[in-house]
Measured scan of single mutants.
Amino acid sequence: AFSSEQLARLKREFNENRYLTERRRQQLSSELGLNEAQIKIWFQNKRA
């Protein structure tokens, strides 16, 4: 489960760009304390 802070950040990123570069995913992973797979799957689900 994502914290409300993490979700807000993911939604902001998604609004700016529906697709993440690998580098951006790595940055978000480290900033949010999530693993890259969690972020990747969140974006895939959000696009679906």
Rank of each mutant, 00 (worst) to 15 (best):
F43P: 02
L34I: 12
R24T: 06
Q26H: 09
R24I: 08
R9Y: 05
R18E: 10
E13M: 04
K40H: 15
W42L: 03
K11G: 11
F43Q: 01
E31T: 04
N15C: 12
K40T: 14
N45A: 11
G33V: 03
L28E: 01
N17L: 04
T21H: 04
E16V: 07
N35A: 13
E36G: 07
S29Y: 03
L20V: 05
N35T: 15
R47W: 13
Q44A: 12
Q26V: 10
F14I: 03
L32H: 01
Q6I: 11
Q44M: 08
S3F: 03
E22A: 14
Q44Y: 09
Q6C: 07
E31K: 04
R25P: 03
S3P: 02
L20W: 04
A48L: 12
R25M: 15
N45K: 10
L32W: 03
S4Q: 13
R18T: 06
Y19P: 05
Q44F: 08
E13W: 04
L34P: 00
S4F: 10
Q27N: 07
R18C: 13
Q27V: 11
L28Y: 00
G33P: 00
S4A: 13
L32I: 08
S29C: 07
S30P: 01
Y19H: 13
Q44L: 07
L10G: 01
Q26M: 11
L7E: 12
Q26I: 09
Q6Y: 02
Q27T: 10
S3A: 04
N15R: 10
N45H: 10
F2K: 02
R12N: 09
F43Y: 05
E16Q: 11
K46W: 14
N45S: 09
G33Y: 03
Q44P: 03
E5R: 05
G33W: 02
K46A: 15
L28G: 00
K40L: 15
E36T: 06
N17S: 08
I39A: 01
G33Q: 06
R23F: 11
N45P: 02
F43T: 00
F14T: 02
L20Q: 02
L7Y: 05
I41M: 12
R47N: 14
G33K: 06
F2R: 01
E16G: 05
K11T: 15
L34Q: 00
Q27W: 09
Q6M: 06
R18M: 10
N15Q: 13
I41V: 08
R24Q: 11
A48D: 10
Q6F: 02
E22N: 11
A1Y: 13
R18G: 09
Q26Y: 08
K40N: 14
F2L: 13
L7P: 00
A48S: 09
E5I: 07
E36L: 05
A8Y: 04
A48R: 13
I41N: 15
L28N: 00
E31G: 02
L10P: 00
R25S: 15
R47K: 07
S4I: 12
R9V: 10
E22L: 09
F43V: 01
S3L: 04
A1F: 12
E22R: 14
F43I: 01
W42D: 02
R23K: 14
E36P: 11
G33R: 05
N35M: 09
I41Y: 10
A37S: 12
E22S: 12
W42G: 01
N15D: 14
N35P: 15
S3R: 04
T21Y: 03
L20N: 02
Q26P: 01
F14Q: 02
R25D: 02
N17K: 04
W42M: 02
E36Y: 04
Q26E: 10
K11V: 15
R9D: 02
A1W: 13
G33F: 04
R18I: 10
R25L: 15
F14N: 01
L7G: 02
Y19C: 10
I39G: 00
S3V: 03
A8W: 05
N45Y: 10
I39R: 00
L10K: 00
E16I: 09
L7M: 06
I39E: 00
E36A: 09
N35L: 10
R24F: 05
E31Y: 03
R18V: 06
E36S: 08
R18F: 05
A1N: 11
E13V: 05
Y19A: 05
S29F: 03
A8S: 08
R9W: 04
A37G: 08
K11Y: 13
E5A: 11
E36Q: 07
S30C: 11
Q44H: 09
L10H: 00
K11P: 01
Q44K: 09
S4C: 14
L32Y: 02
L28V: 03
K46G: 07
L20P: 15
I41G: 10
Q38H: 07
F14H: 02
K46C: 14
E31M: 05
T21M: 03
T21N: 09
F2I: 11
Q27S: 08
N15K: 12
E16C: 12
W42S: 02
R47C: 13
Q27R: 09
L28M: 04
N35Q: 11
A1Q: 12
Q44T: 08
N35F: 06
R12V: 09
L34N: 00
R23V: 12
L7H: 05
L10D: 01
I39W: 03
R47I: 14
N17W: 05
A1V: 12
Y19G: 05
I41K: 11
E22K: 15
Q44N: 09
S3C: 04
E16K: 14
A48W: 08
F43K: 00
Q6T: 07
K11D: 15
S4G: 09
A48T: 08
Q38F: 10
Y19Q: 07
L32F: 03
Q38S: 08
E31L: 06
W42Q: 01
A1H: 12
A37P: 03
Q38T: 10
F43D: 02
E31F: 03
K11A: 14
L28C: 01
N45C: 14
L20D: 13
N45W: 13
R47T: 10
Q44I: 07
R12Q: 14
A37N: 13
E22G: 10
A8P: 01
S30T: 13
E5Q: 08
A1S: 13
K40P: 01
R25K: 11
E13R: 02
L34T: 03
I39V: 08
E13H: 03
N17E: 04
E13K: 02
L28T: 00
A8C: 10
I39F: 01
K11S: 14
K11M: 15
E22F: 06
R23C: 09
R24C: 05
R25I: 15
S29G: 07
F2M: 10
S30R: 14
L28I: 07
T21A: 04
A48F: 08
W42I: 04
S3W: 03
A8K: 09
A8F: 04
F43R: 00
N35E: 13
S30G: 08
G33T: 03
R23D: 14
N17T: 05
R23N: 13
N17G: 05
A37M: 14
